[in-house]
Design a binder for these strands. Structure first.
Length: 691
RNA sequence: GCACCCAUAGCUCAGUUGGAUAGAGCGUCUGACUUCGAAUCAGAAGGCCGCAGGUUCGAGUCCUGCUGGGUGCACCA
């Protein structure tokens, strides 16, 4: 028995009563948590809705309170319900049988397997950083959002495939290649020897970050702000064509640069506990002719048509009536240019069709990286005979039932076109199969810019935030920030726990740093712009990841102490005993009457409300999954940690003299730490031994 | 010009498909370490929820208009 099951039973009882008494089918039954525990554990404002329905149906006017009274008896029959009160204008407030429920909540675990009997697979694409430079904090928001959402979907019982799209043939990679070839005058061998000679301060992706900003200036006369230099811009086109064609020294060089950056980015993400199943590379979408197939499908189904006149003469366009055209802007979206080349959106439709299992073509695959725990990240390849080491089993990639694309909100227009295009090609899929999991950008606060030594104009200083730009090299690099968090955390650990071994110290510092950064990026809802601020991001106090970790660490230390006590008392006798948790469980099972007294009244309410909050993890998770909003789970986790810290302060658990009360406190603390640890794990945050 | 997003405490943000007295964190002020560790807790102060209408038993939440800010609308990716 968990709270969701209990809630469903209550809903069932209300539905049955409404059907029987008023002949009304309730489609949406709202539940609510009363503002204070004294008002009950669960509330239904259903009588208001029923009053409306009854009036509409028969014209009879009936007071919500009397409707609530009529529904009451059916609810009171349920075993775990102690009593039901009608409150306010007509709320149905449910009070659970606390003594009964506390022992039932103890008997876990809740297996979700029954929910996931359907074979459908969900797919999440996230990170997808252009492989031409190091990751910055904005990229990390994308990755953390995506990774956390994957964990939430998993916890809800879904099969999930994680993809990271690698645009290894695009202009951004081409620009860095131009930098290496035409600014640095390097060939592939020179780049390789440079790569192996780089220091840890400036690894390959950092080097590319700097080079990329120099290319921006290189394209203009006299540097940034100057007129475009057509001769040099032609180099970009040349490189781009060479990369697309493949099988030439430039393409080989580009492949090395892109692959090395992907490796570096994967290293960065590994620091945050983020991994992928598949790296889908644009080079294969190109070379395996995914676009050509999608083009055929789109022509067949009449999704696009050839323009014979007007400004877009010679192009294949997709009509897009929801956007009205103006003099400046076309209402139709060009998919194939008049020179015959395909736009990015066209390629994206092909990729999306493959993801959903409706392209009729597949990639070849090879392992890109394997991890100690047996996990493997695969990459696409155009080599049909790609080999995998023995023992590494290839999963079936693609064919997702629903595809979530984690992409920032600036791309909502192209994403809309992809969604509509795919739905037009495969009508039975519908637009619901493609979900744009959009989020607002991470920008820099003016204060953060100054700390980075970035000069601002007076105009910029007045703005609420300044957009980061890879092109301008304007941004906080992910590895820099993580390292700084680790340094700060390590200093704290060293002063608090000088007795720990060095390895354990740095492990703890790493857990804290990851917790701080992940929580910081998750506490904002997706459509809120994060104006990055160093002070906030580097904080370990207040609403932060470390705060939540600390609550779990404290809870664990209670049980460590309890175990130590148990061991020391046992050593004098036979050396075996039931252990403190089992003892508590026995007391809870046998002393129902004492239990009821302890859980009653003001002090009982306070203990009980923590247990109820801890019991709502799955509910919070389900809501986070349904609304694709990881922040919801982050807020829940923080609130649970906060409630535990309060509980921790009010009760001396180990020193409690009343045996039954002690058992209750132990049971509640144990249940809370389990739920809190599980919640944190879904946010990708681990709980260290000590901190 | 058109589309989408945002506006809630001094600052940064929550506020679940409309529900009971609008909540956190930071900052400010006051207090709590003989402890299961103070990366903590308690208390105080701080709100015409951008403005004006509307819908209804009920609106921070839904609708319309307005104001102010952001983003997008390439034969770029």
């Amino acid at each position: 028995m968990n709270l969701i099951e209990l809630q469903n039973r209550l809903k069932g009882a209300i539905r049955a009563a409404a059907a029987e008494l008023f002949e009304i089918e309730i489609d949406q039954l709202v539940t609510e948590v009363p503002p204070r525990t004294e008002l009950g554990d669960l509330a239904f404002p259903v009588a208001f809705e029923l009053a409306k329905q009854i009036k509409k149906k028969g014209g009879e006017k009936r007071a919500p309170r009397s409707i609530a009274e009529a529904l009451k008896p059916g609810l009171e029959e349920i075993e775990e319900v102690a009593r039901v009160e009608v409150a306010g204008a007509g709320y149905l407030n449910i009070f659970f049988d606390r003594a009964k429920l506390i022992s039932e909540l103890q008997s876990k675990p809740e297996a979700h397997q029954d929910a996931s009997t359907e074979p459908r697979k969900l797919m999440v694409e996230h990170t997808s950083i252009n492989p031409n430079k190091a990751a910055h904090i904005g990229h990390v928001r994308n990755a953390v959002l995506g990774d956390t959402f994957v964990r939430i979907l998993h916890a809800a019982g879904n099969a999930v495939e994680v993809q990271n799209y690698i645009d290894n043939t695009g202009v951004q990679v081409a620009d860095v290649v131009v930098g290496f070839m035409h600014i640095e005058k390097m060939d592939l061998d020179a780049i390789k020897s440079l790569d192996s000679s780089l220091s840890a301060d400036v690894p390959f992706d950092y080097y590319c970050w700097n080079l990329y900003t120099r290319v921006g200036a290189f394209y203009r006369e006299g540097g940034i702000g100057g007129e475009p230099n057509p001769e040099r811009l032609k180099l970009r086109i040349e490189v781009l064509h060479a990369i697309e064609a493949g099988n030439n020294p430039t393409a080989e060089l580009a492949d090395y640069v892109a692959t090395r950056n992907v490796q570096q980015i994967l290293n960065t993400m590994e620091r945050l506990g983020i991994r992928y199943d598949l790296l889908a590379r644009e080079s294969e979408i190109l070379h395996l002719h995914f676009w050509e197939r999608a083009f055929e499908l789109m022509k067949e189904r009449g999704v696009i048509h050839f323009q014979t006149e007007g400004r877009t003469r010679g192009c294949w366009v997709m009509p897009f009536e929801s956007h009205t055209g103006t003099d400046e802007h076309e209402s139709d979206k060009i998919i194939v240019r008049s020179n015959g080349t395909v736009t990015y959106t066209g390629k994206d439709i092909a990729y999306q069709l493959w993801k959903l299992g409706h392209l009729g073509l597949d990639f070849y695959y090879q392992p890109f990286r394997t991890y100690d725990d047996g996990h493997a990240t695969w990459a696409t390849t155009s080599e049909p005979n790609a080999k995998a080491p023995p023992g590494v089993l290839r999963p079936d990639f693609g064919g997702g039932a629903i595809v979530y694309n984690v992409i920032d909100s600036r791309q909502s227009y192209p994403q809309e076109i992809v969604r509509k295009g795919v739905a037009a090609v495969v009508p039975e899929l519908g637009e619901e199969a493609s979900v744009h999991l959009s989020y607002e950008m991470v920008a820099l606060s003016p204060a953060a810019c100054e700390q980075l030594g970035i000069g601002l104009s007076d105009e910029d200083r007045k703005r609420p935030y300044i957009e980061m730009s890879g092109r301008k090299g304007l941004g906080v690099k992910a590895d820099d920030l993580i390292s700084r968090l680790e340094t700060d955390a390590l200093a704290e650990v060293q002063t608090r726990h000088p007795e720990l071994a060095a390895a354990e110290m740095s492990e703890t510092a790493h857990a804290i740093a990851t917790g701080a950064l992940r929580y910081f990026l998750l506490k904002f809802t997706r459509n809120s712009v994060i104006a990055f601020d160093f002070k906030e991001a580097l904080s370990f106090e207040g609403e932060t990841g470390p705060y939540c970790q600390y609550a779990a660490v404290r809870a664990n230390s209670i049980f460590r102490k309890l175990d130590e006590q148990a061991v020391s008392t046992r050593s004098s006798s036979d050396g075996v005993g039931p252990g403190p948790l089992a003892e508590a469980a026995t007391l809870i099972r046998d002393r129902k009457q004492d239990l009821a007294n302890i859980l009653d009244g003001e002090s009982g309410n306070e203990i009980w409300s923590l247990l109820m909050l801890a019991g709502r993890l799955e509910e919070a998770n389900a809501q986070a999954a349904a609304s694709a909003e990881p922040a919801f789970l982050a807020k829940y986790t923080f609130n649970l940690a906060r409630a535990f810290n309060l509980f921790y302060h009010r009760h001396r658990i180990i020193a409690e003299e009343d045996a039954t009360k002690r058992a209750v406190l132990i049971a509640v603390a144990d249940y809370t730490r389990e739920q809190l640890t599980a919640a944190l794990l879904r946010l990708g945050i681990t709980v260290p031994e000590r901190m």
